[in-house]
Design a protein around this nucleic acid. Structure first.
Lengths: 106, 106
DNA sequence: CCTTTACACAACTGATTGGTTGTGCAAGGC
DNA sequence: GCCTTGCACAACCAATCAGTTGTGTAAAGG
């Protein structure tokens, strides 16, 4: 994944409230109303946070009578997971080579 | 991990340049000078990005003559990885239950 | 010593962010 | 038809951010 796309996803998660919302949505869908109370925010604030998450592709919305429940898009999270694991692997490979080098020397 | 700590880490990665710097550091340590050219930034800009990454614990600096090379702190990345995987697991468990439910019905 | 190298700190600027209040609107219940 | 519910859009505000230029400084080389 390119740096820009990834940064956009990270930007959406660069806020404690949104991180908490994502954690909440992992346990089940929720409406704006349902998120308003626990997070002590106005309905508008929650609505905006969900919009940011939706624009980053971390969340999808659907219509259900007057309500518009939000669903977590786990695919997006997995993309981050994949990227991080790739970096971790590069890092680990480098450190393995270093250890091997030191082993040969000693 | 709490939402706030995690958001701080995500904030550091909420910029394409810093994501690219992290990717670069995964392949080996680098000085400010070495990062300036490929990213077409001033020395000061790179220095600031590294400071943000360091404050988030994603990078450490060390002194080496006049230079101050930056090292990736893979531990921090692993913390993100762990958190995301936990959310993914919750989400998956929920969807398994739903599938089971539908299977029983059908 | 004096210069060069590699870097950090400070002040400034324009853009973005997270929050607010105010308002509008579509879907149901009565 | 009217009221309530659930939500989104718009305007505004203070704070933060990413970048710039300008300047200071510690370490190494001549």
């Amino acid at each position: 994944m390119e740096a820009e796309t990834l940064a956009r996803t990270f930007t959406a998660l660069a806020d404690p409230t949104r991180v908490a919302i994502v954690a909440r949505l992992a346990t089940g869908d929720a409406t704006v109303k349902e998120l308003t109370e626990p997070f002590e925010l106005t309905q508008q604030a929650v609505s905006r946070h969900l919009k940011v998450l939706a624009e980053a592709g971390l969340v999808t919305r659907r219509q259900e009578a007057q309500a518009r429940p939000a669903s977590l898009e786990v695919e997006r999270l997995v993309e981050i997971l994949t990227w991080i694991d790739a970096r971790r692997a590069e890092w680990a490979a480098r450190h393995d080579r270093l250890a091997e080098h030191l082993r040969r020397l000693g």
